[in-house]
Design a protein around this nucleic acid. Structure first.
Lengths: 141, 141
DNA sequence: CGTGATACCGAACAAATTTTCCATACCCGA
DNA sequence: TCGGGTATGGAAAATTTGTTCGGTATCACG
């Protein structure tokens, strides 16, 4: 009935991914699809994984530069969540000014085929959606 | 500066998917990854596509039965969005009591490889996340 | 006549996510 | 000293998404 934590029962197993936000509704991980989606569905996570695909570690400032449309605060949060979920590893160097690096873990790298196929699908169908949806040229940016 | 429709410029191309909700921030479809994600990232869309994968059309009531944990209202909304995005086709039969069917379009079917790879990844890593995340046995449902 | 199934939608509310602004603390160069 | 870059986080507002309840309408069954 209620959706409060511990009361709603969505499945036999209760997990809480994405701990940067305190959730009241547990992620239902009985469903493999929803498990996978829950790890990558936030706005910029798939893009972050794509930026890290090469294997070389990236500093947060570099990730910000490569995804300039993302609010820096969101990238911070999503990097933290990706790290908590074990998809990226963070290395902090005890230096000043501060320096840190994020790189894909093997678990995160195992998601790359998913990123690949989504990327290809998007490239192949981008033109279709350009035509499909109304273009709002009258609004000047 | 502002995020109001028509003011914020996120890219050269402005689209508004998921028209069941009026959005103020346009979906940035310059990025192929975000285009693909925007079509399937809602809570139950990937599951709906998975249910329709066989090719045979399903009635809404049947989809509700197969996804009992989803709120019926959400399935209605997401089916509508999937139809608006061209991923499923809806057939309305002029009968009483009312009858309708949803089936995958070729465009929607072209997403199935993505669903497949996400489903397999989830199945292969479900056990890992069962161990990884705290089990909340003390809360009885 | 009352109940239930069918499909769908409005509206208010709850929850989750993103955005925005500000703050910490240190270093470097002008 | 002032401004900029570095990494990170609090906090509140804005936005998006999901939930819940109730309503429309018609038919069939008991």
């Amino acid at each position: 009935m209620e959706n409060l934590f511990g009361i709603t029962r969505l499945g036999d197993i209760r997990y809480f991914c994405n701990m940067a936000y305190e959730k009241k509704i547990p992620v239902d991980m009985d469903c493999p699809l929803r498990l996978t989606m829950s790890l990558i569905e936030s706005k910029w996570k798939s893009c972050i994984l794509d930026e890290l695909r090469g294997g070389e570690p990236l500093r947060p400032s570099e990730i910000h530069k490569r995804l300039p449309e993302a609010a820096p605060r969101v990238l911070d949060i999503q990097l933290k969540e990706l790290a908590e979920d074990g998809l990226v590893a963070k290395t902090i160097f005890p230096e000043l000014p501060p320096r840190s690096e994020y790189r894909l873990t093997p678990l995160g790298a195992s998601l790359l085929p998913i990123i690949d196929v989504m990327l290809r699908w998007g490239e192949e169908h981008m033109e279709l959606f350009e035509k499909k949806y109304a273009r709002r040229e009258e609004l000047q940016g």
